[in-house]
Amino acid sequence: MDNEDIEIKVLLEAVRLKYGYDFTQYASASVSRRVKKALSESGLEKISEMIPRIIYDRKFFNSFVRNLSINVTEMFRDPLFYCELRERVIPYLQTFPHIKIWSAGVSSGEEVYSLAILLKEEGLYDRSMVYATDFNDIVLESAEKGIYPADNIQKSTKNYQKAGGRESFGKYYHADYGSAIFDRSLKKNIVFANHNLVTDSGFGEMNLILCRNVMIYFNLELQNHVFQLFDSSLCNNGFLCLGSKETIDLSVIADAYMPVSKKHRIYQKKIHRQGGTLKNAE
C-alpha cells in the first residue's frame, strides 16, 4: 500500500469513529480524488494533516464531508427513464389504494419533485406517500425548500418535455429574483428525512424505490448491503429504479428481480421468500 492510501484509510477511520459517517466502503478512486480536493482547499500539505483538524474542528469536518458527498443532480435526469416509469410502472401502481415510495439519496430534491409532478399528472399523488432521504443535511434542507436557481429552469423544462410532461412546466413553480420556487402542493405528501444507507435500517412495504446515482459510489460489498436493505423494504412485486449506468446484475439479490426496463434500469421484485426458501410470487 502506498503512503497516500494509508493516510486515506486512517482518515476515513477517524471520520467513522468520530462522526459515524462511514466512507470506508466507498469506491476508492473517487474517494481518493475527493479527499485530495479537500486537501487542496485546506491549504495543508499531507492528507494525514487533515486528521487532527477533522477530529477537533467541526467546521472543518463539515466542509470535508461536503467535498466527499457528490450532490450533482437535476430535474427529470435521464428524461427517458421518466417516460418508462410513466408507461411501465405507473399503470401497475394505479391498481393500489395507497402507494409508498422511497427516493433514497435524493440530494437537493430535484428527483423527488420530478416524481411528484409525474404522480400528479397520473392522478396518483393524493394516494402516495413519498419518503425523500439523504445522509447530507445541507442538501436535504434545500430539498425541503424546493427553491432552485432560475438558471436551471431551461434545462429542467427541456427534460420535463422529453420526459413526457403533459402540462406547461411553468405551472409547477413561480419565478422570484433569480430563483424558481416550486409549488408547495408538490411537497404535501413528501416526508424529508435524514437517512444513511450504510448505517440505518430500511423502511417497510415500499411499492417503489428510486436510488439513482448513489450506489455507483459504493464498492460491491456495500452495494450488496444496500441492495439487501432495499429488498427488505420493498413489498412483493415492488419496483426498484437505479441510475442509468447502475446495475443489479452483480448483486446478491439479482435473481429475485426481473428487469422491467433493462435500458432504464427498472427492476421488479418477482419472488418472495418464506422461511429462507425461495418461492415464486406467481
Binding site: D5, A27, A29, I216, Y217, K245
Partner: peptide, 16 residues
C-alpha cells in the same frame, strides 16, 4: 459520467 480506474483494476463511474 466520469470514468475512473480502481486499484483492483475495475471501473468506477461518477457524476461529479
Amino acid at each position: 459520467y466520469h470514468l475512473l480506474v480502481e486499484k483492483d483494476l475495475t471501473f468506477s463511474l461518477s457524476v461529479d
